[in-house]
Design a protein around this nucleic acid. Sequence first.
DNA 1: CTGTTAGCGCCTTCAC
DNA 2: GTGAAGGCGCTAACAG
Lengths: 339, 339
Amino acid sequence: MTVDGHATIRDVAALAGVSVGTVSRVLAGNQTVKHGLLLRVRAAIEELNYRPNQAARALRSNRVNVVGLLIPDITNPFFAQMANDLERLAADAGYALILSSSHNDQDREARQFMAIMEHKPLGVIFVPTKGRPDVVVPERTRVLAIDRRAEGFASITVNQRESAALALDHLVALGHQRIAYFAGPESTDNARERREGFLARAASLRSAGQPLEVEVFIGDFDFESGEKLARALLNCPPKYRVTAIAAASDQQAIGAIRTARDLGVVVPTDLSVVGFDDITLASLVVPRLTTVLQPVREMAETAFKQITAGTDAMKSEEFMGRLIVRDSTAAAAPHVTSD
Amino acid sequence: MTVDGHATIRDVAALAGVSVGTVSRVLAGNQTVKHGLLLRVRAAIEELNYRPNQAARALRSNRVNVVGLLIPDITNPFFAQMANDLERLAADAGYALILSSSHNDQDREARQFMAIMEHKPLGVIFVPTKGRPDVVVPERTRVLAIDRRAEGFASITVNQRESAALALDHLVALGHQRIAYFAGPESTDNARERREGFLARAASLRSAGQPLEVEVFIGDFDFESGEKLARALLNCPPKYRVTAIAAASDQQAIGAIRTARDLGVVVPTDLSVVGFDDITLASLVVPRLTTVLQPVREMAETAFKQITAGTDAMKSEEFMGRLIVRDSTAAAAPHVTSD
DNA sequence: CTGTTAGCGCCTTCAC
DNA sequence: GTGAAGGCGCTAACAG
């Protein structure tokens, strides 16, 4: 017994009448233990309610059943969902999750990264703030970027360009020809790529003969930005208005819907709105938001699988967004397309 | 140097020309090291980019710079805020935060609790699901319940009764006399206590001569519940309607506002709405939500301070909610109060 | 004040 | 197949 009342591997060995080596082998699931001893050891473990000391294990093997997660901000619903999925995966596999926030600050990111490293995690999954974080990573620690790419690391991402184009395809299929795109801040790669993908698809449709006008408005990813951009945009007579808005985030889209309602513009009859992300709130607003889902759960599963995949090299994977059609989009009113 | 390329305390000692004991003392912030040596050690640490091995430290001292956090669900904005505040406090104090979710499942809670324990955290802060979790806690581990009480543990809570009464006081001061209360699920202590506090204050006001009618509707804490209860309630002519709704959660309140708008009931002119919690969304909806703030940040600070307070016994503390007046409440229309 | 040293609990050779 | 023993990196107790 240790001071704190916990049994050690020696107590187990003594009770089972074997050596610590044998207990250790049983713990490791080593097949080379005779069945009788195995049962005795198991019984002793049970009786003493023995739990291996993770610290000792970590010290010896320089690796502990911990996975680090470093994200910009846990109060962002998108990252909260990601943390939730990863925590569940980790817990079910017997790993603990160390959570840390960079608050989009590169220095803080580097500091937090190193702080996580001190705990000798099996691996670290992180959402890079920008560029390559200034950290030294031991060869054996498995590190993976998620949601955003980071120089020098494998990454699990979503193809932003193609996914953003899905929103445009959907609107065009509904007959919309005058469309506004609410972009996110140009300082983030994801916002820029979404905008580029959206515009590239627009250009390609136009050169295929599709009549189409797209106006771009640049803002932030949040609710207020969506409200503000929409207010400027919708404050004109219907015949001059766009018939649809595609936004770079669900928050923007929800803000736009709110403004539309304030201005008496009916969604989706007078105006279609598409978001991006599929946060939980998207299916709770009225009307329920049509959006492009980022497959967070699958990304989390893939990331976790790679982190725990033994010694294989990490490799980047790219996912596709999926269009989720709900109630905020509808066919363009015919009188708007003509004339 | 160890295999993984990281310097150890011995490398630092060698480079600085001192013993490991001295380095250890410097690390511990021990004052009894001569200034010259201290500087040499610091320089060596810097040069080698030395990071103490937390596992070794944990093994030796049976205590590691880790705090465990066990909450029901990180995707709940209220808990996300709490996790955010705690993570920040922990990081700034040099602690790592192990995050774990119970998903309101008692068995899972117990399992996760023990899993955290294996990592020998300095302490654990947890939001109890119900009753006393079935766990064995070593004497030295500091455990604290937060947001909800748990038998056998000190807890950091909000006085639900008094806080809920604040909402009523506010509405009554605005002249409201017919009020609906949207309660949360009776299976949770917090929901029950909020309802009881609200009704107790109503009774006390009435017996002091204040004309007042309160109708209680029981639902869940979420958006949909608020919408549903409001729909049933508001679908009648103004003269039969309540003039105000107080809800047990911001989500319910926001749902109610949404329904009101759908039914053409103008908030706050025709109907005042008060929430509870002050989630981030509360100040983003239109109209911005009047609500009772739960002082999450202060609770987190108190909890963290206690956990890291050395050997003092933990003690329960109770906070008060604070009324945050925004735009969803206004004076009752005079014609409603008469007749 | 500083150096030396004995383990913390576990895993992993190395003998047998 | 099993036991014995060394040592992972660090802290704390004890000498000096």
